[in-house]
Design a binder for these strands. Structure first.
Length: 442
RNA sequence: GUGAAAGUAGCUCAAGUGGUUAGAGCACCAGGUUGUGGUCCUGGGGGUUGAGGGUUCGAGUCCCUUCUUUCACCCCA
């Protein structure tokens, strides 16, 4: 082996930057999460879908412009097509819906748990490969749809122990901010830039923010107007600022949203935050983010209304709202709060068969074989060892019942069944036990 | 992509200003109690100190390069 090859062999032992290996222990956690995401989605009436894990590069540049390419893992296939690993699922969703739009009953309530890749520099809570729970409702412009999306997220979070004391839902409306900016004499074409500046408000000190805004070409009167918007503490204060008919209508929508969330029983999570504008250009109305209240981490989830996206992909004009929740920040947070459950990476056996003597091993396999054939999780010690060791192994595997095969099994067809939790033990006839193992009461 | 800090066993951490063969706990494996358990006792495998090069009689320790992680930017779908 050449020196170069030795080097290569060593470097391939390391998983690529920003990726993770899922050993059984981590895989069990991941599956726990997926199952909860899936169950919650289905319970709320969403249907599961998925698309390809890579798409035409254009699919992503249409929406986000060419700058996005540097954040993508892109490549060319042998036919010269430009492709990219999916950095998110929303473009795929828009494409899938644009193709079949007229055939789908509305509202379309879909969910997915895609594995996605972004070529960014990894940090805490942000990797190059991750999973993201996506929830979308397409074809409804009613606030109820926004409320439903948010409710699924909160219902899930509540289930994993993240109540309103620990986390909050930050809500704003891009539309209303836009109308307020217009009232302040700031043209619509500069709103994108304003959103970007407003996004910094919570991260910077007052002086730093002023300086930053000034550098971005915001004049003093504009800065005052922007700050007035950013300082609005709640919806009722927003009312006094909203002068135009449009902004009043949008404010009414936000009130409606709050009412729906109250009705669903998750109103306590709601916080009005004027600085929440989201980075993406395509959001058109209500936007929201979910944060832990200590706010030391990135957003747990984020989303909003994007009424123009489907038509951008060549589909009919269809209103839509949705959010994404990544696995990384969520699991980090659960770990930090001690709320991540211990999930065994194997299925604990219902029955664990133990022999008193290696010569009885054939009977162990016979019983295990029969139980497994009947659909029970049954197991035995991997080595012929003293009974003490076998019991130890059974306990380690979290088995419920131990079945002891001894001389009496050979001579009288008797086995002993022991409840490993209570310690209770009883002798039974083998055939009778095997006929209906589920009727065992101990 | 730019800037900064860190990296010692699977995990958590030791190892004065460079100085014998890099240690401990947990975990893992094997023995011990001869028909009954996560306890206990004994032993064991494990590391080219992230990798590569340099300075030196001598490098875990100092210098350079690189990889990974973390933090701040960029961006955040």
């Amino acid at each position: 082996m050449s020196e170069n090859q030795t080097k290569k062999t060593k470097s391939i032992l390391q998983a690529p930057r920003g990726t993770r290996d899922f050993y059984p222990e981590q895989m069990a956690r991941l599956q726990w999460l997926f199952q909860l995401w899936r169950q919650t989605s289905l319970r709320h009436g969403f249907e599961e879908y998925d698309g390809p894990s890579f798409e035409h590069l254009d699919l992503y540049t249409i929406k986000s412009g060419d700058e996005i390419v540097s954040q993508l893992f892109s490549f060319e296939d042998r036919g010269g097509r430009d492709l990219a690993l999916r950095p998110e699922l929303t473009p795929t969703l828009a494409r899938m819906i644009a193709v079949k739009a007229n055939a789908l009953p509305r509202p379309i309530k879909w969910f997915s748990i895609p594995r996605s890749c972004r070529a960014e520099r990894p940090q805490k809570g942000r990797l190059r490969e991750f999973f993201q729970w996506n929830i979308d409702i397409v074809g409804s412009d009613e606030v109820l749809a926004d409320a439903e999306c948010i409710f699924v997220a909160l219902d899930f979070l509540r289930q994993v122990g993240l109540g309103p004391v620990l986390i909050e839902l930050r809500v704003n409306s891009r539309f209303i901010v836009s109308t307020l900016l217009i009232d302040a004499g700031i043209d619509a074409e500069r709103h994108g830039q304003m959103f970007a500046i407003m996004d910094k408000y919570e991260k910077l000190s007052e002086a730093e923010f002023d300086k930053y805004a000034c550098e971005q070409g915001v004049c003093d009167t504009e800065l005052t107007a922007v700050k007035n918007i950013l300082r609005v503490p709640d919806l009722s204060s927003l009312e006094s600022l909203s002068r135009s008919e449009q902004s009043r209508a949008e404010l009414a929508k936000m009130r409606e949203l709050k009412q729906y969330l109250d009705d669903f029983g998750v109103g306590e999570y709601f916080v009005y935050k004027p600085a929440v504008v989201r980075g993406l250009a395509y959001y058109t109305g209500i936007v929201f983010e979910i944060f832990d209240r200590s706010a030391k981490m990135r957003a747990i989830a984020g989303g909003g209304r994007y009424d123009n996206l489907i038509s951008m992909f060549g589909g009919p004009s269809m209103p839509a709202v949705g959010f994404g929740m990544g696995d990384v920040v969520l699991m980090d947070l659960l770990d930090e709060l001690g709320k991540a459950p211990m999930i065994p990476s194997h299925q604990p056996p219902e029955f664990f068969v133990i022999d008193a003597d290696p010569s009885l091993f054939g009977m162990v396999l016979k019983i295990v074989g029969c139980l497994r054939g009947k659909g029970f999780a049954a197991d035995y010690a991997p080595k012929r060892q003293a009974m003490g060791k076998q019991f130890k192994y059974a306990t380690g595997r979290l088995a419920k019942f131990a079945i002891i095969v001894g001389d009496e099994t050979r001579t009288q067809n008797l086995i002993s069944v022991k409840n490993l939790q209570s310690g209770e033990q009883r002798q039974l006839n083998v055939e009778e036990f095997l006929k209906s193992p589920e009727q065992l009461s101990l």
